[in-house]
């Protein structure tokens, strides 16, 4: 029971220290070309376009994800659980590139 209590506390502490970073999509670009985050951190991908949809995804193999079609004004959050480098792109706008390094 004591160990379960410690485990819950540790999980809460660990969750509390995980950071959340915003990456904006505007003018068919990510607002950063590269970003370094810690394992367990989250990135909020926000479509800040006026009238353009995006479809952000990672090329994997680590931290594979796909955000589906994102309408202007919407945001989606992705937790990066695995250390390593992941290339993130927009499937529609292939010139949008972001390198995410998870430490």
């Amino acid at each position: 029971m004591k160990y379960l209590f410690y485990a819950i506390v540790m999980a809460l502490v660990s969750n509390a220290t995980a950071a959340e970073v915003m990456i904006s999509q505007k003018d068919k670009k990510f607002d950063k070309a590269a970003i370094k985050i810690k394992k367990g951190d989250k990135i909020v991908f926000k479509n800040n376009e006026k009238d353009i949809t995006h479809n952000v995804f990672s090329l994997g193999p680590k931290n594979a994800f796909e955000l589906k079609t994102q309408a202007p004004g919407t945001a989606s959050t992705v937790e990066f659980k695995e250390p390593g480098t992941t290339d993130v792109e927009c499937a529609i706008h292939t010139n949008m590139k972001l390198k995410v390094t998870v430490e």
Binding site: T53, N55, E66, K68, T69, A91, I92
Partner: peptide, 14 residues
């Protein structure tokens, strides 16, 4: 089109 290589919905018939 590109949907042959990328399975996401936005790329079908793209």
């Amino acid at each position: 089109g590109r949907g042959k290589f990328l399975k996401m919905t936005s790329q079908q018939h793209a």
